[in-house]
Nucleic acid binder design. Sequence first.
DNA 1: CACCTGACATAAT
DNA 2: AATTATGCCAGGT
Length: 107
Amino acid sequence: MKTAPPTPFQSKVYETVRHVPQSMVATYSLIAARIGCRSPRAVGQALRKNPFAPEVPCHRVISSDGSLGGFFGHTGGPELTRKRRLLEAEGVRFDAWGKVLPEHILS
DNA sequence: CACCTGACATAAT
DNA sequence: AATTATGCCAGGT
């Protein structure tokens, strides 16, 4: 089975996400800016490939508007519900709109 | 190298 | 809240 070598861009994304502490979530835009990229979409593509699951807490990465975004390639459905469950288990709270409270979002 | 897709963001409707 | 339209950049084919 071939393991595709991660690109430098990917490595930066994984490392940055890995530095996100519990009870906190980072936005795709934040990660992008952090690694010096202006495109949050590229970050999503990197995480969607699922590098090293529990090693990189991809579930701590959400959209800038507080929505969960996606999880393992699923933008909706039971997988997203699971993502929200994980965040709740880590102490992250949601508002009436089902969005993460701003105080949990790194800026 | 050109084209298409995508776990986004922002503004406007 | 939701939906639509446009801009953005990296990766895969």
